[in-house]
Amino acid sequence: MYPMQNDDWARDKAEFAASPVHAPHPAGNTDSSPLGRQFAQLTALLLNADTVAEALEHVVRATFAVVPDADVVSVTLRSADGILHTPVETDPIGAELDRLQNRYGHGPCLEAAQEAMAYKHSGDLAGEPAWPRFGPAAAKLGFASVLSTSLVPDAVPPRLSGALNIFSRQRGKLGDDVVRDRALLLATHASLALAHTEAVRLAELQEAQMRRAVDSRDVIGQAKGILMQRRGIGADEAFDLLRRMSQDLNVKLAELAHTLAARHTEIDLLGD
């Protein structure tokens, strides 16, 4: 017989994954700290969350709990048209703060949602030179400090990009490393929660995109080889030639490559 462990995977996977952890692990020690417990609880909640909004709601609550200076926490999502949406917040004023940034076209949540792996911090919103209109407006609403951390880094549509935002009513807060690290960890949780809950919806689309990218790279390579052999030229030259032909004929590079690879014995190229 085969030395195999194959079985009904769906059933076994659940069983395997549910079996208790016996071996001690260095990373497991933080479970005993209050912060560790918060994260443990958060992850358990995220795994049971049915919707993106529900998952983000848990992240927002956990952020509120582990950042002592937080007065308002929100998650901002940026849609393909660049508009900020505020699906979850600990206070309705979170949505108002996003609306202000939409109106002025600048602000921490907007910028963190646009940039990969970014933090945007200010400990003095009233006098913040980076946000000359949003800063004073936020100060008028009673906020002095802000920390926005990007969610999914460098996302492309249809995936939403976003930011986890923490506002404090006190000046000079939310700028130290401890808060930053916690925010990054929480934002990572939110990003992965987004990735997982969106995965099923987006997977088919992305799978098709990935598959197309892999396939078209294959035929582009093959077309390069065909041109190299026909013309006695190098790989870079062949790629340039391919690109020029694609422009001249107004045909997509991958399509041209595909035609060349599929019908190269019949096609005579100019100059052959």
Partner: peptide, 29 residues
């Protein structure tokens, strides 16, 4: 989904097995 980091995900970079495809094109010709 991200534009940076993973080279395999960038459509304009040759794939890991590109040389095999190029060689197949050459041989076919």
């Amino acid at each position: 989904a991200s534009g940076e980091g993973a080279s395999w995900a960038q459509a304009d970079l040759p794939g890991h097995y590109d040389d095999v495809n190029v060689a197949a094109g050459m041989l076919a010709t």
